[in-house]
Amino acid sequence: MTALPPPLVDPSWLADRLADPDLVVLDASVGAHRHAAHRIPGARPFDLDGALSDPASDLPHTMPSAADFQRELRALGVHDRSTVVVYDAAGIYSSPRAWWMLRAMGFDRAAVLNGGLPAWQAAGHPVTTDELPYSPGDFTARPRPGLLVDRDTVAAALADPDTAVLDARSHERFTGAAPEPRPHLRRGHLPGSTSLPFTELLTPDGRYLPLPDLRARLAAATAARPRLVTTCGSGVTACILAFAAHLTTHPAPAVYDGSWSDWGRPETDLPVTTGP
């Protein structure tokens, strides 16, 4: 078995390995980007909007059961020996979520393509509209508790002076000045959480900032607290923050799986704060 890939790879790294029979490229695009006309040759659909969200949950993008995740990854042709590269058509948006889910299921042989499909195309690499056939894999789910957490864990984290809770939504959504894209949700944020919009960790062309810049921005947002939980609208862009924390070796970041789609529901009595 080959060595583990670095967690973040550039287009040239992927292009050099595209013909490797043990490489699996997964397109984790969501929303309108899910229907992009072109894909990286051989890419397979990691369906965060459908099969790879929990069908038993009324919340979007929540983690399916280990058995369901294993079944879907095997159907995508992923083996335990595979090297997986995930990307999305927006640049860096939903691909860190796919990476985080793989890690939460015990799979470490995965990488995020920095800049996603736009960076791949900007570098002059080929795209296709063809879907290539692939055979089922033998992926084994080995869940790691603690990487994806629920509202009770988050409530305890908010009361813990050693834990920073970072919100990846826009600052306007955080303060309640802007409405939520899911109109049934309340406006505002988790009391005691800190705003760190995911866009502040990315370059204008949709790549991660250099490591020293990531480290500085995370250090400022966490105020050097040793534990970290990230949240967002539905658990997708929270993974951009958590992945950045992983890149900078912040200890044990966790992602609130339901995020604001769970906490912000009007039928709950969970506290909400508006303003800065």
Rank of each mutant, 00 (worst) to 15 (best):
M1C: 13
T2C: 06
P7W: 03
P7C: 03
L8S: 04
L8A: 04
A15W: 04
D16E: 10
D16T: 12
A19N: 15
A19R: 15
D20Y: 11
L26E: 02
S29A: 10
R34T: 01
A37G: 12
H38M: 12
H38S: 14
H38R: 14
R39C: 00
P41N: 06
G42H: 05
A43Q: 08
F46Q: 09
F46T: 09
L48E: 04
S53G: 14
H61G: 06
T62N: 09
S65D: 08
S65C: 08
A66F: 08
F69P: 09
Q70M: 00
E72M: 08
G77F: 00
S82C: 12
T83V: 15
T83Q: 14
V85G: 07
V85L: 07
V86K: 13
D88R: 14
D88Y: 06
G91H: 10
I92D: 06
I92M: 06
S94C: 03
P96Y: 06
W99S: 01
L102A: 03
A104D: 10
A104W: 08
D108M: 09
D108A: 12
A110L: 09
A111H: 02
N114M: 00
N114T: 02
A122M: 01
A122W: 02
G124K: 05
G124F: 00
H125Q: 06
S135Y: 02
G137W: 09
F139R: 14
A141Y: 04
A141C: 05
R144S: 07
P145G: 11
G146V: 03
L148E: 00
L148R: 15
V149N: 12
R151D: 06
T153G: 08
T153N: 09
L158N: 13
L158Q: 08
A159G: 14
R169V: 01
R169F: 00
H171V: 13
H171M: 01
R173I: 00
T175M: 05
G176Q: 10
A177W: 03
L185R: 15
G192H: 06
S193Y: 01
S193A: 13
L196M: 09
F198L: 07
L202P: 13
T203R: 13
G206Q: 09
Y208K: 12
P210V: 01
L211S: 11
D213N: 07
R215G: 05
A216N: 03
A220N: 03
T222I: 01
R225H: 04
L228I: 11
T230L: 01
C232Y: 10
C232E: 05
C232D: 15
S234C: 04
V236T: 12
A238L: 04
L241I: 15
L241K: 12
L241Y: 05
A242K: 10
A245Q: 07
L247R: 13
H250R: 15
V255Q: 10
V255K: 15
Y256C: 03
G258A: 07
S259F: 00
D262G: 12
L270V: 05
L270A: 12
L270E: 00
V272H: 11
T273S: 15
